[in-house]
Design a binder for these strands. Structure first.
Lengths: 324, 324
DNA sequence: CATATTTATGAAATCGATTGCATACTTTTT
DNA sequence: AAAAAGTATGCAATCGATTTCATAAATATG
């Protein structure tokens, strides 16, 4: 274990003060070019790297963005993180990812994160907005929209996406609908449900709403408890749709011959499924990237913003296309 | 934006020195219980949190573990991270996750990470081991095994897992094999290939090896280039198997009626696939957790270790079971 | 050539916490 | 009652970098 090389060591070796070395490192003030080259050479030879904690302490900022997500193993969140992380890395920021587990842990997770003094936080959870009241650094929320103008928001247009899906379904002659809703404290789930309610109130169709929780198993359960089947089961997310398709298979029903099934999210696997899933694509990666862009902007210029992404209907093979 | 509360502020309010407050915070030395309570009360009132960077600077450690993975959106890695992160959080460590993108970036990513002074690093990439020579902090490698005893390793027994799979296939009367291998610089891929080679040299079967890259698309490609089909296509990972099944479907071949397909990894989605995938389960979550355990042990006791997990054959519906 | 300006550099304070050493006050021991 | 041991606390150095202020040397200006 070699000893750590510090600024002081470099200064001594070069026969200058630490100030001068620091100036070379940060190009903060001009330094005689001969001296400069000498210092640069020594830095390279010794493999010196500035100490991050010391620098952070002095500057009062860490060049680190915290990200809080409920579950990193959920493809939606890992893709969101990837989008943010790729962008931040490019801008020389690093990412402190905190996996909270569930919203009950979010306040604790936030405190834990704040102690690490990130310059800002991207929050992808559903915890109460109150816990962010006094954190004193920029916050951007993803996949939810609140009225508080102290924060920024990145969302996608869930209402429009679900509406597009339903318009497609009615155009392809689907007359009866079962809608499986997601957790009712989640913004996106509520928006998708709202789209469905508006749809049924303006179209002459048979419909039924089942409240659920976005999980694979819930899809299976719903199918098991259904006595008669509609033309289409509209799921609030892909995972539930996978469950529904699985459940239907167990009951020997063919998708889409006997009935159609749709999802929402367009996870990587929805294309690989058999039948491949008709769903709505959310640009999750780009949403993560946008969150990162916004947060850097907030740090620099202290201004908040709202960014809304479009959702795109992806027609595949889990829906019957009866003309249209 | 309120001003930051520091140790000094607390000390002044309590009419004591910063040393005393620090002693209360860390229980490092006894403090008069009256004084102690007074300090605790003030700390609570002001919502004071010790400054992480200052503490790290002074103590020379950050209570942070770095994790380098090639791709966070790959379920294998996100599950690994989750396993490690859950455990580390419990032990009051935080996790600095770096998504390198690919192995060419690994050296750069490592440097970037090291600047943040993590106490140790969990590495899940395939970059050259040389880059870890002089980092001066504990390193644990996951999913690979090297001879260097300065590091720790968490692997699963890929050779055994693939052997179990092949033994099952021969028992269920599969006579001809196409083996799709993964990237040849990846430890696990090599082990799985080695198992296949040993198998074919000791069993009287027809076999063919195709070198590939673990991707979904490569599975499709292989099927498209195949002129005659074996009894089973043995894939080195699940993703490729998904591609193979997809490709076979496009050619109107039924799995498992016309031929069997197997995977490796047992991703969450392999169960949901149609047909559900016969594969080998790796305890990824537990491997991540083990990596975290080992790394904390290395930090404390400075001893390295190797941990090998068993892989478990999971028989589902993508293989024909012809007696046995 | 004296003065003003620019350029290059160093000394020392600073960020916020921890800790070795010193010290003052109690309490115990002989 | 003097010496020894124990308890509670403060002072000041320290971690490694950045930056303000001061100053010396070099150059420009009139």
């Amino acid at each position: 274990m070699e000893k750590k090389v510090t600024l002081k060591d470099i200064a001594k070796k070069a026969g200058v003060s630490t100030s001068t070395v620091s100036r070379v490192l940060n190009s903060s003030l001009p330094v005689n070019s001969e001296t400069k080259n000498k210092i640069i050479k020594i830095i390279e030879e010794t493999g010196y790297h500035p100490d991050f904690t010391a620098r952070s302490l002095r500057l009062g900022k860490s060049n680190t963005i915290g990200i809080i997500i409920p579950d990193i193993s959920n493809p939606f969140f890992s893709m969101l993180v990837k989008g943010a992380d790729d962008y931040l890395k490019e801008k020389n920021f690093s990412t402190l990812i905190c996996n909270s587990g569930n919203e009950k842990n979010d306040e604790k997770t936030l405190k834990f994160l704040i102690e690490k003094k990130p310059d800002a936080v991207i929050y992808a959870g559903i915890g109460n907005i109150k816990i962010f009241k006094n954190v004193g650094i920029p916050i951007v929320f993803t996949d939810r929209l609140e009225k508080d103008e102290n924060f920024s928001y990145v969302v996608s247009n869930n209402y429009q996406g679900m509406t597009d899906m339903l318009e497609y379904l009615i155009k392809t002659k689907h007359k009866s609908y079962v809608f499986i809703s997601g957790n009712n404290n989640i913004f996106s789930a509520n928006e998708r449900l709202r789209a469905f309610k508006d749809f049924t109130s303006t179209h002459n169709v048979i419909s039924k709403i089942i409240h659920s929780d976005y999980s694979f198993d819930s899809g299976i359960d719903v199918v098991n408890n259904l006595s008669e089947f509609p033309d289409v089961i509209v799921c609030s997310n892909d995972l539930t749709a996978y469950g529904v398709i699985h459940g239907l298979k167990l009951r020997n029903l063919n998708v889409p011959k006997n009935l159609s099934v749709t999802g929402y999210d367009d996870l990587l696997f929805s294309e690989m499924l058999n039948p491949s899933l008709t769903t709505v694509n959310q640009p999750v990666y780009n949403m993560g990237k946008a969150a990162a862009e916004i947060i850097l902007n907030m740090i620099e210029k202290n201004n908040t913003s709202v960014r809304i992404f479009k959702n795109e209907l992806i027609v595949r093979n889990s829906t019957k296309n009866s003309g249209g």
